[in-house]
Structure formats: C-alpha cells, structure tokens
C-alpha cells in the first residue's frame, strides 16, 4: 500500500521528466552528431559539426558575448543589489513605500518591458536619445555592436535588480541587530560595520545568489531576441539566440544542437559547483 502511494506521488514528475526533458535532450545530443536539415532525415557525420563550430566566427563571438553579458550583468547587478539592500535595511520614513515602488520592474512582464526599452532607445525618436542630444552628447542605438551590448546589459540590470535586492535584504534582516549595537558602542562607524560585520555574514548568501543568477542569465533568450534579434550582422548573439537562429530560422538543426551540446558541459560544471556550495 505504501509503495502504491509513493508511486502515485512521485510518478507524475518522473513521467514528465522522461517525456519532456530526457527524450528531447537525447534528440539534441543525437542531432549534434548528424547533418540534420529541417524536413530531411539526419545523416551521421561524427564530430564534423563541432569542427565547423570551432572555426565559426559567429559561434565564437556568441560565446564571448555570453561571457560578457553574464560576467558584467550578474556582477554589476549583484554589487548594486548588495548596496541597495544595505540602504533599505536602515530606518527611514517611507522605506516600505519606496521599496514597494522600486520592486515594480520585477513583476513587470518581460516582453512589455523589453518593448519599452526598444522604444526608449529608438535612434531617431527615443526619449533617451532626445535627452542625450539635448545635453550635447552623442546618440546611442541598437544598431551598433557596443551600444547594443550596453543596452542589453542595462536592461538586464534594470529588470533583475529588484529581485536580488530583496533577496539580499532578506539575508541582511537575519543578522541579529545586537551585533551592530555592540559595534556602535565600541565606536565603529557604518563603513567599518559594513566591512567587518555585514560582509562576512552575507558572503555565503551572496555567493549562492551569484551562482543562481549566473545559471538563469546564461540561458536568457528574450532580451537579445527582442532588442536586436542578434543583429547588427549577427554580432550580438548569445549562445541561446544563435542556436535558435540556426535551428528555427535557418533550419539547420544539426549545427543548432551542436552549439548547445558544446556549451552544456559548462552548465554541468556550474551544477557541480552549485551542489558543492548548497551542500545538497
């Protein structure tokens, strides 16, 4: 009887896991070793796809872009989030209201917020360029690589900053207030308290946040796809968007799968680091 219940509780997940994760993943791994065009049968070609990718400028570039996007996006975001969490952890009037408004970008739908950014950074009529040119500064737009990457990272920080601020704030609120009071009596100023009390106590949570955020950001598809579609000239692609472009738009499923299968070990490595940190 107990066995039947266990089966009943666990089986639905296992069934979906095999049907919707393991099976597609096997297809992906199989395709990565074949030449597979949309509508045609796959032909086994060994490692040719990977050799092709090794010399493919777009793919190497998408790797670099992904590193840039994740490296800058995650770290800048989390450093600001830590500072803001500290800011919101102090006592002042309207704290709750300000925090409630500040959170707004988080529940905002991704696509509508991306479209707002697209509109604000419109080269000719966008409000950002209006402000920049009335200050006598050069315009920026999504049509040039550097500026497009800047806007993509800026969007990422804007959208995700609230979530991480609130998460780190929850961590800060778990530090007993007595520690700070004792330090104040001993004559520490707030900078010293941040350095010698807050930082050591928040370190672990901060590392966990970095890893989780890295994993979520690594697979981000929407930001680049909506803002630039990978353009200009396929220069702003991330791995996820380039694989989608090859698989969905160009119909080359073999190459598309190989792109993912080559990047997957990175994810597995991250999983191992995460497991070590979370001690699961």
């Amino acid at each position: 009887m107990e066995k039947l219940y266990t089966f009943l509780f666990i089986f639905p997940f296992i069934f979906l896991f095999i049907l919707l994760i393991i099976y597609p993943l096997s297809i992906e791994i199989y395709y990565s070793f074949t030449e597979k065009k949309a509508g045609l049968e796959p032909i086994f070609i060994g490692l040719k796809n990977f050799v092709y990718l090794f010399f493919n400028k777009d793919y190497i570039r998408s790797f670099f872009n992904t590193m840039l996007f994740v490296g800058l996006g995650v770290n800048i975001k989390l450093i600001i989030a830590l500072l803001l969490a500290n800011f919101f952890n102090s006592n002042f009037k309207f704290n709750r209201i300000i925090r409630g408004l500040f959170i707004l970008p988080w529940p905002l739908p991704i696509i509508s917020s991306l479209i707002i950014f697209y509109w604000m950074f419109d080269y000719d009529w966008g409000v950002v360029n209006y402000i920049l040119s009335s200050l006598g500064l050069p315009k920026i737009g999504l049509g040039r690589y550097n500026e497009a990457m800047f806007i993509i990272i800026l969007y990422h920080i804007w959208k995700n900053l609230p979530f991480w601020t609130i998460t780190l704030l929850a961590g800060l609120q778990r530090i007993p207030i007595e520690i700070y009071e004792a330090a104040r009596i001993d004559g520490s100023d707030s900078l010293k308290m941040f350095r010698y009390i807050t930082l050591p106590l928040i370190k672990n949570l901060y590392l966990v946040c970095t890893i989780l955020s890295t994993i979520w950001t690594l697979g981000d598809f929407n930001t680049v796809w909506v803002l630039t579609k990978g353009g200009p000239a396929d220069s702003t692609h991330l791995i996820s968007t380039l694989a989608f472009r090859y698989g969905f738009e160009l119909g080359d499923l073999g190459i598309s799968s190989a792109m993912i299968v080559f990047a997957l070990p990175m994810i597995i490595a991250l999983i191992l680091i995460l497991l070590k940190f979370l001690k699961i």
Partner: peptide, 29 residues
C-alpha cells in the same frame, strides 16, 4: 523510497537547465 536522491537530483537538474537550451529539440519531440 529507494530512488529519493535520484529524483531530487533530477528535479535539481531541470531547475538548472536553461529552457532555451532545450527549445529546438522540444519542438521536434
């Protein structure tokens, strides 16, 4: 139950796998 660890690792694996990395084969499937 016997495979508890395995089940919880499977769940963690899905949590960590970016959905965009599985999109194309998901469509094929």
């Amino acid at each position: 139950f016997k495979f508890k660890r395995l089940v919880s690792n499977a769940s963690l694996f899905v949590y960590i796998l970016p959905p965009s990395f599985l999109a194309i084969p998901f469509f094929v499937h």
